[in-house]
């Protein structure tokens, strides 16, 4: 990853740095050279933080979430972050650094828990806080409601959205929705950051000929995502950061590193063109309008048990049929999870995601 980034950094093409600040957990300390890199961007107020493991919608408040917040406080005492972000969803893993984010039912309970957690993140970092849209969805209803749910979630902290355009493209493809129809369902005035990334195709074993697009972040940026980028920029009046995202395991060959470089240059040229239509000046602050009050962390034990049961089913199911049978006879059946309406190929995909990440990164 760093080898791929080095030419871009040396040529001063990188105008800001987004740091996944919680993936360093298992090291004793940040390496000195990396600390210097973060410090350089921090001093220019061009450093932003991106969390991976907080598990925003966990029904139970976990001790690890307290540790995560303390780690965030420490990072914020060391570096100046222009904003902090996390992922939408709950993590499937029982261990805090395992699993993948999956969707949750959009209910009053999950809304209250999400708002409670976002307030705690804001209290820890004292800078704008945002959430990234999730690529994975169980059904078309999930896809169509995610934008408005994000808007409600972010309202108390006046937070913002990272609009991951590859995640959006996954949904456009997987549920055959036109871009113009889906983009209008997102509160684009809340978009402060855009993610540009690649992914991979997965052939469904259930539906011959159907290919599922997944946000595996291990390949080049598709031309379609750059097209979405060009279309979306003018619709986001408070956009500030555009971030190229790719996992290191997709950057092992010389060719893949060259492609990463080329993709960044393409992204930056689109940004340069867009900047000709913008003018320097203050951008939206995305800070709470009034003081936030924190009581005890909100919890929903029923939701937590359903999340654990779902994760266990997905991580251990030997086949799609087994997973579907277990879901329909689980405590999730007949509830707001609406497992009866889940798209068969997406259950198949959820099994693959959960089983891929259950051992952690």
């Amino acid at each position: 990853m760093l080898e791929a980034c080095l030419p871009l950094l040396e040529e001063a093409r990188v105008e800001a740095l987004e740091w996944s600040f919680d993936v360093l957990y298992q090291t004793a300390e940040t390496p000195a050279w990396f600390h210097d890199l973060l410090t350089a961007f921090s001093k220019e107020e061009r450093l932003i933080g991106h969390g991976v493991f907080f598990s925003l919608f966990s029904g139970r408040w976990l001790p690890e979430q307290d540790v995560w917040l303390q780690h965030l406080r420490t990072c914020c005492a060391t570096f100046h972050f222009d904003h902090i972000t996390e992922h939408f969803g709950f993590m499937t893993g029982t261990d805090f650094h395992q699993g993948a984010p999956l969707n949750i039912p959009y209910t009053a309970s999950t809304l209250a828990i999400g708002q409670d957690r976002l307030k705690r993140i804001y209290e820890a970092c004292a800078c704008p806080v945002g959430l990234e849209n999730l690529a994975f969805a169980y059904s078309i209803d999930d896809v169509q409601r995610q934008g408005s749910f994000l808007d409600e979630l972010l309202h108390p902290i006046n937070g913002f959205i990272i609009l991951d355009l590859h995640n959006l493209w996954c949904q456009l493809h997987n549920f055959s929705i036109p871009y113009e129809q889906l983009i209008h369902l997102y509160p684009l005035d809340r978009v402060r950051e855009i993610h540009i990334s690649g992914g991979s195709w997965d052939d469904s074993l259930l539906e011959t000929g159907r290919r599922i697009r997944r946000d595996t972040h291990d390949d080049a940026v598709p031309a379609a995502v750059f097209d979405l980028f060009r279309q979306t920029i003018p619709r986001c009046p408070h956009l500030k950061y555009v971030v190229m995202e790719q996992l290191g395991n997709g950057l092992t060959s010389h060719k893949s590193k060259q492609q990463f470089y080329a993709d960044f240059v393409t992204m930056a040229s689109i940004v340069d063109t867009a900047n000709q239509q913008r003018e320097a000046g203050a951008t939206h602050a995305f800070l709470p309008a009034e003081q936030l009050y924190l009581g005890q962390p909100l919890e929903d034990e029923t939701l937590y048990q359903q999340q654990r049961e779902l994760a266990n089913i997905l991580e251990s199911a030997g086949s799609f049929d087994a997973a579907r049978h277990l879901l329909l006879t689980s405590s999730l059946a007949g509830t707001a999870w609406h497992v009866e309406q889940w798209d068969a190929a997406m259950i198949e995909t959820a099994v693959k995601i959960a089983q891929k990440w259950k051992e952690g990164f």
């Binding site: 360093l24 390496p31 203050a282």
Partner: peptide, 13 residues
């Protein structure tokens, strides 16, 4: 506001 081009980093270390 001027847009800024950035990279996400962190996994590699």
């Amino acid at each position: 506001g001027t847009l800024l081009s950035a990279i996400l980093i962190g996994i590699a270390v």
